[in-house]
């Protein structure tokens, strides 16, 4: 998968690229509007991560340019502006998704994976990870051909872990991914622990033991 990251902050750009290179994406990064236009003209990407505030132009302009030239790369906007207007403008200009800074890389990854699946999977809604099979349309999970009875939140949690397989995902990222704004002003994320505990128990019952690992007090990892 080829990914173009357009972000004016070099340090953040480097983090994003490093993260996606680690999970086997082909990554290219630019920090300016003009460089981005050049890249878009010369190459084709599967997905573009786009920052709205660029030193020499607006991300919205870039989106317009992309859509005018009938390029149908998936675009995920990352922006410091957490306003509904920007979100709507972005989506109207043809962006596929929108993430607000400061985001978790695991969250960005989950969004990109979902976007790529929507765009390129062509009807296949089955996600496989080890001996786990997730049917995204029917929202069912099978482990060694046995169906797991998961709640909506547990399903989302497992999907998030599968999307970030073999990566450590922090408690905070999980909490925000599953509960969104409801976790605002919450002093602790202990509830993530009980969710994980339940998920682990259910996986163990069906023979998928130890695939969800706890990484000290930091977070969790789905090890395949």
């Amino acid at each position: 998968m080829k990914l173009l990251v357009i972000e004016d902050e070099p340090s953040l750009l480097q983090s994003i690229m490093e993260y996606f290179i680690q999970i086997d994406f082909l990554c290219e990064g630019v920090t300016t509007y003009s460089n981005a236009i050049q890249k878009i003209d010369d190459y084709t990407y599967d997905c573009i991560i786009l920052d709205i505030n660029l030193p020499d132009g607006s991300g919205f302009e870039l989106l317009k340019y992309l859509r005018e030239y009938k390029k149908d790369e998936g675009v995920v906007i990352i922006s410091a502006r957490n306003s509904l207007d920007d979100k709507i403008t972005g989506l109207n200009f043809g962006a596929d998704d929108y993430v607000t800074k400061p985001f978790h890389l695991s969250e960005l990854n989950a969004r990109i994976k979902a976007l790529i699946r929507r765009k390129y999977a062509h009807g296949s809604n089955i996600l496989e990870a080890g001996n786990l099979q997730m049917d995204l349309a029917a929202r069912t999970v099978t482990c060694e051909n046995q169906i797991l009875a998961l709640t909506k939140n547990e399903f989302n949690l497992l999907l998030f872990l599968v999307n970030n397989k073999n990566r450590v995902v922090s408690k905070q990222a999980i909490a925000e991914h599953i509960y969104g704004d409801e976790t605002d002003n919450m002093p602790s994320f202990d509830f993530v622990y009980s969710h994980i505990k339940n998920l682990k128990r259910k996986l163990k019952e069906k023979g998928c033991e130890d695939i969800v690992q706890t990484v000290y007090g930091l977070g969790y990892k789905l090890a395949i």
């Binding site: 902050e9 340090s11 953040l12 983090s15 994003i16 490093e18 993260y19 680690q22 410091a80 800074k101 400061p102 985001f103 978790h104 890389l105 695991s106 990566r167 450590v168 922090s170 990222a173 990484v215 000290y216 007090g217 930091l218 977070g219």
Partner: peptide, 30 residues
């Protein structure tokens, strides 16, 4: 503040994915 926060967050995520993370470091990172 959002941009530096994003940088810190992203670096932390890269850090917690480093191999050979010790418990002491993990607690600091936590």
């Amino acid at each position: 503040i959002q941009t530096p926060l994003s940088i810190i967050r992203s670096k932390l995520e890269l850090l917690i994915n480093q191999p050979h993370l010790t418990e002491k470091n993990a607690s600091l990172l936590g």
